[in-house]
Design a protein around this nucleic acid. Structure first.
Length: 256
DNA sequence: ATGGCTTCATAGTGAAGA
């Protein structure tokens, strides 16, 4: 079973890239973030006609998440239960015994911003949600754009990023507290090349110079981790014309 | 160099992203 995540930065713009990637990578489930599409405008027919199931939760201009799958989803849950949030950032579903949560964690903007406080409280609610999810579904993967680079080795130039969002001690502590619930950082289950990133700045030729961050993650529950066979970034879509600034990340699992 | 580029909403530019 292959589970992937991709911040597409507008599904409308990236639909051709997504269609190509679904064919070339053959994921069983892919979580999308930043669809930036109201549900009424979601390209449902295009995806269904290509043979996929899809559930989604979107809004105008910002945010928006979706889960595309080969098999139909069950027990679909939208948002974080009991956490009022107008921003469409979370969607979850089961595929057989495997629970998949797709998330677009807030960016935070800057350390002195209200959005940073929103990010930290959001992460607190998300943690409670993951804890409850694990109790019901031991085989859970939590994928998406976390907007957190967990360690300095996940940052192209830690000095440049010091004092910014995505790398602050509080954000990194929140990420660690998610792992402490009983998850592994999927990519860290395997050897990765130095300077392996999932996002590169559009500006200043960020991708060509590998000025990136590793902020898109696949968290694998401890029950599922022994079944994980690989976890990698696919940089190929980032090289296309008019790419998303994020690359897809995928993990392969032996059947549960 | 607090910019660079890209998106959306708009019909000039501004907000936001990371």
């Amino acid at each position: 079973m292959k589970i992937a995540t991709w911040n597409v930065n507008s599904l409308k713009v990236r639909l051709p890239h997504l269609q190509d990637w679904l064919i070339s990578a053959q994921p069983d489930v892919i979580a999308l973030q930043e669809t930036k599409t109201e549900d009424a405008n979601f390209p449902l027919n295009v995806i269904q006609e290509a043979g996929w199931h899809v559930v989604f939760s979107g809004q105008k201009t910002y945010n928006g998440v979706a889960l595309i799958s080969r098999e139909p989803p069950t027990d679909v849950v939208y948002g974080i239960p009991d956490y009022a949030d107008e921003q469409k950032r979370v969607i979850a579903a089961s595929y057989g015994k495997v629970r998949v949560i797709g998330a677009y964690i807030p960016n935070g903007q800057s350390l002195d911003s209200d959005k940073y406080q929103y990010k930290l409280s959001w992460l607190s609610a998300f943690k409670d949600y993951l804890q409850a999810t694990l109790q019901r579904w031991p085989h859970t993967v939590v994928v998406g754009d976390y907007n957190i680079a967990p360690e300095d080795r996940d940052v192209h130039d830690p000095k440049t990023w010091e004092g910014s969002v995505l790398v602050s001690p509080a954000e990194r502590a929140a990420f660690q507290s998610l792992l402490n619930l009983g998850f592994r950082d999927g990519m860290r289950l395997f050897e990765q090349a130095e300077q392996t990133f999932t996002w590169w700045d559009y500006r200043a030729a960020g991708f060509r110079r590998n000025l990136g961050l590793r902020i898109d993650h696949i968290l694998v529950s401890v029950a599922l981790a022994p079944l994980c066979r690989a976890c990698e970034v696919d940089k190929a879509p980032r090289k296309l014309e008019r790419p998303s600034d994020h690359a897809p990340v995928w993990a392969e699992f032996q059947e549960v």
